[in-house]
Design a protein around this nucleic acid. Structure first.
Lengths: 216, 216
DNA sequence: GCAGCAATAGTCATTAGGGACTAAGCGAGT
DNA sequence: ACTCGCTTAGTCCCTAATGACTATTGCTGC
């Protein structure tokens, strides 16, 4: 197999190059960021590109698209530190052929790459199952997040900064009663009873993932 | 050099084993968690242990201590995904000899390991500078954190979980008036005016670093 | 045009939270 | 023995937050 590897950790990048080489494969390029990876794929047209998901929000997922554009025959396999079923789904939808965790032994990763090249989907069955099944059930307190309006996200931001209703009203340029209503609706939607609980919900679970892209 | 490597990513672990081997060093053991690492160090008494910092809060830092206990002649070099000057300081204080980022090439990491074995401090000068300089001035809102009592840390935990005074009192097994006093003192020490601001302070800055080790 | 939704603004009653105190029991260190 | 600091517990007063409403404006899609 001819492989392009992309990861922001030079250490892993080099070590992977050696390991894959030792396993009898040809690593044609090492990329430190998605741009380099795209350029390398366009130039070398490898069989597969091993791409780390740990790039600033969304960058990796967008890169999948571009890689497939510049070289349709190149399969993309995502490499990640944690098994995040939320990302798996996104990656597959965007055109990735596989998803493997860094906690796996090299032999298994090579196996996955091989499967991807053979045109199969290279994802752990259990992970894929979770990626597809839990279509954010209504039970999930985070399910409600997708129904928050833009204004409510702004309010959420204020809450997480510890602002009072008045500071919030000031910041948003509205009456305090309006800010209050937004907070009220936010709390109702999230099913919690205080701004503090809302803040706890956000900081505990949806660190960056659940935040809408266009609002940073 | 005889080396023990500890990281929760098997991939990196194996690849590092190969790469360090190729660089002419002997990797005597690979550990997937701190416990394994401590056991391996005790058994093999290596020159140096390369230890990932990315284990659940504080575990890694505590491991440094234990490794130095079971084998005083073994140097500990921390390996991390991001250059976090808050952790660097802690690691050095706890007995680590070095700190390198995964974004560095293998050659540099080997260089650092070598330095550690020779008894020198293996930390990037710039990083060390930042780790030592901001001696938590009184201006820093986080400076106060080190004066929190154990009870107040527990209260802080409750606050960050969005609990009310009564839930907190229940959880701590005290009267609500007592819980209230703790909250009051906590707010005063942090110089904030609401629990929400306290929570914001914690979730914004001191994610895991500033949390006392013995309280998870 | 009308239904639906978001954003705006308001009311009233109730509860929770915060500021500023006082004070007692208890353990560690001097 | 004495002090210091942590933990415990309490008070009074006031402000902020919440629940449960209603209502208007403006935009979008049918």
């Amino acid at each position: 197999m001819r492989i392009v590897v992309c990861d922001d950790h030079l250490l892993l990048l080099e070590a992977l190059g050696l390991a894959l080489g030792a396993a009898g494969h040809e690593v044609v390029a090492l990329a430190g960021n998605p741009e380099e990876a795209i350029a390398a794929v366009e130039m070398h047209k490898p069989d597969v590109c091993l791409l780390d998901v740990n790039f600033p929000s969304g960058t990796s997922v967008m890169a999948i698209h571009q890689i497939r554009e510049v070289s349709a025959e190149t399969k993309v396999v995502m490499l990640s530190a944690e098994a995040d079923h939320a990302i798996v789904g996104r990656a597959i939808v965007e055109g990735a052929s596989g998803y493997v965790g860094k906690e796996k032994p090299i032999a298994e990763i090579v196996e996955m790459l091989d499967r991807a090249v053979r045109g199969q989907l290279a994802v752990e069955p259990a992970l894929l199952q979770r990626a597809l099944r839990p279509q954010k059930s209504t039970e999930d307190p985070l399910w409600a997040l997708q129904f928050l309006t833009d204004r409510e996200w702004q309010v959420m931001r204020c809450i997480m900064e510890g602002q009072t209703t008045e500071e919030m009203a000031e910041a948003l340029g509205v009456q305090r009663s309006t800010a209050r209503t937004h907070v009220q609706n936010l709390l109702t939607k999230l099913g919690v009873h205080s701004r503090l609980q809302a803040a706890a919900l956000m900081s505990a679970h949806g660190s960056l993932d659940s935040w809408p892209v266009h609002l940073r």
